[in-house]
Design a protein around this nucleic acid. Sequence first.
DNA 1: ATTCTTGTTGCATC
DNA 2: AGATGCAACAAGAA
Length: 278
Amino acid sequence: MPELAEVELARRLWDVGRGGVIESLSTSPKVRVFRGVDLRAFERALVGSVLLSSAAHGKQMLFRFGPAPDAPPHAHMGLHLGMQGDLLVAEPGAPEPWERGKHDHLVLHQRGGRKLVFRDTRHFGRVLFHPGAEDPAWWRDLPPNLLSGEFTTKALGAFLTRRKRAPLKAVLLMQERFPGIGNWMADEILWRAGLHPETPAGSLDPAEVADLWRTVRRVTRDAVRVISPDWKYPDSWLFPHRWEDGGKCPRCRGGLVRETVGGRTTCWCPACQPRRLS
DNA sequence: ATTCTTGTTGCATC
DNA sequence: AGATGCAACAAGAA
């Protein structure tokens, strides 16, 4: 379920490998996750180098590699987990905590035996490669983080106006404005804001835009705050109820509804999120 | 066997 | 031109 908080958790998992020399790579060259990557150049740049640092922005991750722990980077790798991708670590000596998978498309073998694994059964994820010392363009050009000062009510209002006829559910999934929001966060936001998922984006008044802005920030902050390796979503959120058949709204105890909106399965509470008269 | 899926992109249509 | 909607991508689960 890789949305922004899960992506941050996955990124952090590989922190244990920072400073370690990469002795070799295992890749599945023909798998779609490597589309557009020059694998020979990628391997040449990474083998013998050290994992220096990493960062996550929305659903995108960046890993920096250099010739030595205290040297500047000379190569960058981007990872996107797609629908089902995940990062794993296998410590040396210990039996691998998972069955050796045919979907482990990228394994960084570090000196000493630790393995950093990118697994993706559905191949919707993506590996990006950028040789060079500077952060790549695809990283620099990402839209402002939802918790940054650049994500303002004004920016939100302008975007909703531009997408005025699209349903709010579809608009919240647009990464160009809401980096890191996925299906569950979009449903959570609309539920907390009391907005029906099919509400046309352009129909909110200024007070509703401000309220939606606060809700986006609150759900984002809560998601980032609650994650840990053994995290669990509070029962007071919509999240743990949205896939249950006969699930009940944690606020009003009424029955939840599940239908496709904006091309995606969407869950909402008809009582708390009434459809507007248009 | 058929239908479903937590994401993104490219294309057709308005 | 820009906005919108949808099929396609791949694999496994129910």
